[in-house]
Design a protein around this nucleic acid. Structure first.
Lengths: 221, 221
DNA sequence: GTATGTTTCAAACAAGTGTTTAATAAATTC
DNA sequence: GAATTTATTAAACACTTGTTTGAAACATAC
């Protein structure tokens, strides 16, 4: 029993790193099992299929992340001060950086996985994630509404996905951007600093009022 | 001679559609050549390898797009009024929508390809594109600097990539988002409308002043 | 009309893919 | 401690992948 868990985790550990680095379909079960130092057949034994393994890798992060995020959102909801967009976005930070304590480089790997999953089947996994973690997304949306009640739901939907796009895209490719930043400007920035620049950017974007009147909720226009 | 061009284009046409829909490594040469109704070997004959085919598909769009973009940027640069971030971002619109005239659904396919290429090797193609079309990016950056001279280069670099992320990510997955928009809010939006919402969002984000002082250029802080 | 260069084609190639099998080993249960 | 469930293993399976081959068809030039 103690050993079977070990095998399962060895596979997950090796898989997530390779998936993040090279993509899902570019990573074969043979290199995964070789890196994990387990038998090839054990993937199908423990996970059933490669597809299920991908989901398992994905879920291990998502569950941890969404749990932390939920408790962070509850905190913001319970406080007395006014809820701002910036505060809502900041609920993402701790849960994300927290992953580094669970797993070395965890936040980096997680964002890369997210980026790949997002682009992989262009929308299918996006939908899947939006359904599987719909309660988290709903809560996040509700918080955003409290911060910007003047926005009508459809407009908020679009702005939410603009933010998601910038967030995931930037952090998924943060390593390349960090390299450029260092070579071109001599600035060494870590993930935390990237987020520190990203959040004001997104807050301002989300809160912008430079829009056609019909994008506001009824009565506000 | 007239036939070899036709074969080449049939391959490119079939390939770009399949690449956009299913991804690069998920699309085999056999389904490409089947859709194009040409012989399997003709891909290697005309393009050398699958990798070169991918680049050819990508370049056919990029060249058309960047040419239009350059002339659009020259226009903005030549006008007398003040250059705003919004104006700079709007230089992207016509070149993008123009593609629909060259090829049905062209802008949609192009953005999907961009999204895939961006995520595929996480940064490698990003770097490749930034080098191959560095003159375009440099011109775009120069325009942005004219619009926001108070931003120091490194801060502009980050904000530029925040915008790129939101832009490419949103438009690459626009179909899924459009479906949700229709089913959840009953709103049918086209690419043009998405961009119309995106640009004010990005302008506000890019122009935000809610940042630590050390992110501004020397003397401004 | 022969010769030259270009393009198409069916077939085969070598390598890699996820998955399954049946035998062995290990752990757990009664 | 024998019986039974659970885990590991090497091997094979059936299939797909990108690429190459060599002959045939076509076009062009002299």
């Amino acid at each position: 029993m103690s050993n079977q868990v070990s095998t399962k985790n060895r596979i997950l550990d090796a898989a997530e790193e390779l998936f993040a680095e090279h993509g899902f379909s570019e990573t074969s079960l043979r290199v995964i099992t070789a890196n994990a130092e387990v038998n090839l057949a054990s993937v199908n034994y423990h996970f059933g299929s490669k597809k299920s393994l991908i989901e398992a890798v994905f879920d291990r992060y998502m569950e941890c992340f969404t749990n932390e995020l939920m408790s962070e959102m509850v905190k913001v909801d319970r406080q007395d001060q006014k809820i701002t967009v910036s505060k809502v976005l900041n609920t993402l930070v701790r849960p994300l950086l927290e992953i580094d304590n669970v797993r070395p480089n965890g936040s980096s790997v997680f964002m890369k996985l997210l980026g790949r999953a997002y682009a992989e089947t262009q929308g299918h996994i996006r939908r899947f994630a939006m359904e599987r973690y719909s309660h988290v997304l709903a809560r996040f949306t509700r918080l955003l509404h409290k911060a910007s009640p003047e926005l009508k739901p459809s407009e908020m939907f679009w702005r939410l996905h603009f933010m998601l796009g910038a967030f995931i895209f930037t952090l998924a490719g943060h390593e390349a951007l960090q390299e450029i930043s260092e070579s071109d400007f001599g600035e060494v920035v870590d993930v935390k600093e990237i987020i520190a620049r990203l959040i004001p950017f997104l807050s301002a974007g989300f809160s912008n009022t430079d829009i056609p009147a019909n994008y506001l909720s009824a009565g506000e226009a």
